[in-house]
C-alpha cells in the first residue's frame, strides 16, 4: 500500500506539474501499463493545474491499495466552482490571462479529467472543491 500527500500552492506556476510528475514516476515504478499510466498522469496534471489556477491552494493525496486501486484525491480550500455544470462543458473557461499564457484555459480541464477517469466525482462549495478520481490496475 502506498499513501503520499502533496501540497499545492495557489498560482505557483513555476512548480505546477511537479506533483503529477512525482506521481507518474511512482506509477511507472509499479509498472502500470503505458495507456493507463498516461490516463492517470493526464488527469492528475489537469487537476493539479486547475488547483494552481483556480483555487486558494490545497493538497493532493495518492493512495494505492493492496488490491491495485489507484485513488487520487484533490482537496482545495476554495473559492469553489460557481457553476459546476458549465465547468464540465468542453470549452467553458474562467482561466486568468496568466493561466492562458502558461498554455491553459482551453476549457478542457474537467471534461478531459472525467473522460480519462474510471471513477469521477466532484463536489464544490465556497469552502472548497473535492475531486475524487479512481482507476483499477
Amino acid at each position: 500500500m502506498i499513501k503520499e500527500i502533496y501540497k499545492v500552492e495557489r498560482e505557483d506556476f513555476i512548480n505546477a506539474g511537479k506533483v503529477s510528475s512525482k506521481i507518474k514516476t511512482i506509477l511507472k515504478e509499479l509498472q502500470v501499463p503505458g495507456a493507463l499510466l498516461r490516463k492517470i498522469a493526464v488527469a492528475c496534471y489537469e487537476a493539479e493545474i486547475n488547483m494552481v489556477i483556480h483555487s486558494y491552494g490545497g493538497i493532493i493525496t495518492l493512495h494505492i491499495s493492496e488490491d491495485g486501486l489507484v485513488h487520487l484525491l484533490f482537496e482545495d480550500t476554495g473559492p469553489g466552482i460557481k457553476d459546476l455544470n458549465a465547468a464540465l462543458t468542453p470549452g467553458f473557461s474562467t482561466a486568468s490571462d496568466k493561466a492562458r499564457e502558461m498554455g491553459f484555459g482551453a476549457g478542457m480541464g474537467l471534461p478531459n479529467i472525467r473522460r480519462v477517469s474510471e471513477f469521477f466525482d466532484v463536489k464544490s462549495s465556497s469552502e472548497g472543491t473535492t475531486l475524487d478520481l479512481r482507476w483499477q490496475l
Binding site: 505546477a16 506539474g17 507518474k24 498516461r38 498522469a41 493545474i49 498554455g103
Partner: peptide, 10 residues
C-alpha cells in the same frame, strides 16, 4: 515548463 510537463505526461 508546461509544454515540457505536458509532453512528459503524454
Amino acid at each position: 515548463a508546461q509544454s515540457l510537463r505536458t509532453a512528459e505526461m503524454l
